[in-house]
């Protein structure tokens, strides 16, 4: 049993409470197995789901700013699971830190005295920098030997690099390195950070299908048996668009798309029954059966 406990405030975000339940359950269980205690903020609201891009965006920053204030009351750091929330919270925090005008107006607006002195961290970053992938590797009970996995990062932890990146934005490694620590074989492909279409699924079927197709087919062409991602919206797009892709591209073969935490949980030998496999359009379980049982 792990003795050294790392206690860190945690923000799951809306999507992990609903469509990405499997992300949340597998992430919490894995964290616990690695000696990380995630303390969910007692009260939290939606981050806003997209960083407001208007020059005058103060009103739209109030939501994420309230989350930051709540988190700061619990400590100096905040671990975020959803990469969109991470992106929005981190950029909001940076705006508060660096833009005095915004800081003053926001504090007036949400009745707080917040200086932006919080470290907003993506959970994968916590895993890499605080737990350490070597320790993850040592804790693995059921290595994912022989599994060829494509790490998919999406946009939110890469761009804009100066505000959110904790990795090389043109050639990120963190997720690949984690997959390697789990015993899987991360494959090289060019689309690790190409946009999946994000919310375009709602307005353009064509955009959503073709953007995901270029990512999925690139991963498959390079030998991937599954895709591992850290973004709940990317997971949804990449997974659920495959039916439409099949209609548009004859002969298309499906590929499962998992949250990295699901793979982490399996590799740590955890009970994966509540990892919410039913929500996946392409069932990952047949591929996972290739892994030796513990």
């Amino acid at each position: 049993m792990e003795t050294s406990q790392l206690r860190i405030p945690y923000f799951p975000g809306c999507t992990l409470n609903t469509t990405a339940k499997g992300f949340d359950t597998s992430l919490r269980a894995s964290a616990q197995a690695l000696g990380v205690e995630l303390v969910e903020l007692p009260e939290w609201n939606c981050c806003g789901a997209t960083f407001p891009l208007l020059a005058d965006n103060i009103l739209d920053l109030a939501g994420p700013a309230s989350v930051l204030v709540a988190a700061r009351e619990m400590g100096e750091r905040l671990a975020v699971a959803c990469t969109t929330c991470y992106n929005v919270l981190r950029r909001t925090n940076l705006a508060i830190q660096t833009d005095e005008d915004k800081r003053q107006k926001l504090n007036l607006f949400i009745e707080a005295q917040y200086e932006g002195d919080l470290q907003v961290l993506d959970f994968l970053q916590v895993l890499r920098d605080e737990v350490g992938f070597e320790k993850v590797a040592r804790t693995v009970k059921r290595p994912l030997t022989g599994l060829k996995a494509a790490a998919y990062y999406g946009c939110m932890v890469l761009r804009p690099a100066s505000e959110v990146a904790y990795d090389d934005p043109e050639n990120p490694r963190a997720l690949d390195d984690l997959l390697m620590a789990l015993g899987a074989e991360p494959i090289e492909y060019a689309h690790k950070g190409e946009c999946c279409g994000s919310y375009l699924a709602v307005v353009s079927a064509q955009a959503a299908a073709e953007m995901t197709y270029s990512i999925l087919s690139s991963a498959q062409k390079n030998g991937a048996q599954l895709i591992a991602t850290n973004c709940p919206l990317c997971q949804f797009n990449l997974d659920s668009q495959q039916a439409e892709i099949g209609r548009r591209h004859t002969g298309y073969q499906t590929i499962p798309v998992l949250y990295f935490s699901q793979l982490l949980g399996i590799a740590l030998g955890l009970d994966a029954d509540d990892f919410d496999w039913e929500k996946h359009s392409v069932d990952p379980r047949p591929v996972l059966e290739l892994v030796e049982p513990r």
């Binding site: 809306c14 999507t15 990405a20 939606c46 806003g48 919310y199 919206l233 949804f236």
Partner: peptide
């Protein structure tokens, strides 16, 4: 079906952008 399946973060984003 879309409403049930699509993550709400996408709806919120669309609502804000569109």
């Amino acid at each position: 079906r879309d409403l049930a399946e699509i993550p709400q973060q996408a709806f919120i984003a669309c609502f804000r952008k569109y």
